[in-house]
């Protein structure tokens, strides 16, 4: 069981404000803690903090609890919560914002496959401009749990049998163009 007592001293003051200043996350301010989001979330039973708790913890500056939580990575971006929230809080987008912060600060659970997938996916899209799913899956397993990959052999065979396995990696033609654009985003960040 995780510690449930929260100490004032654990707060990282300003964290909530910072998140709520991001475009799309402003409405968090108005959360009434009704719990609708946790109720509709198909994954809340697997989460260490429910979506409602994440909203409360974020707003009250419990940065470490939030960023190390598995919840943000379990969010499958199904948008059920965002659509149902009576205060029109874009919960899914807040989850995205928190994921970005966790990656940026390097405090996500290391061998937990979900953030690793997000990173590897982005890397492939970044470098090649396209993603070839089976190559991505192989990389994911190598990085997290190669034993699990062995358990997947049947699925692999099924995909080959039905012609859904790609033998070559897809790529766009003007890779340089894309690289330039993404680089400029990076540069802008540094100067900001």
């Amino acid at each position: 069981m995780k510690r449930t007592i929260k100490y004032e001293a654990d707060r990282v003051k300003g964290f909530g404000r910072e998140v709520m200043s991001v475009p799309g996350c402003e409405e968090l301010e108005n959360c009434i803690q009704c719990g609708t989001c946790s109720g509709v979330c198909p994954l809340s039973i697997y989460m260490d903090h429910s979506p409602r708790q994440i909203m409360a913890l974020t707003r009250s500056d419990f940065k470490n609890e939030v960023l190390t939580s598995h919840t943000i990575w379990l969010c499958a971006s199904c948008y059920a919560c965002s659509v149902e929230c009576p205060r029109e809080i874009r919960i899914t987008d807040i989850m995205y914002e928190l994921k970005q912060r966790a990656i940026h600060e390097g405090i996500y659970p290391r061998r937990f496959p979900i953030p690793v997938l997000a990173k590897e996916f982005s890397k492939m899209a970044h470098d090649l401009g396209r993603v070839t799913e089976n190559f991505l899956v192989v990389k994911l397993f190598l990085k997290t749990n190669w034993m699990a990959a062995i358990g997947m052999w049947r699925l692999g065979l099924n995909l080959i049998r039905t012609g859904r396995f790609s033998l070559k990696r897809e790529s766009i033609q003007r890779r340089g163009e894309l690289a330039k654009m993404l680089e400029s985003v990076e540069n802008e960040k540094e100067t900001a």
Partner: peptide
């Protein structure tokens, strides 16, 4: 012509601006 990956949900989790650039190309 020469379309690129939309970024999907994964890129949004890593870097929202880059994800938007990817989609906007």
């Amino acid at each position: 012509e020469d379309w690129n990956c939309c970024g999907a949900t994964a890129y949004m989790a890593v870097d929202e601006v880059k994800a938007c650039v990817l989609a906007s190309r």
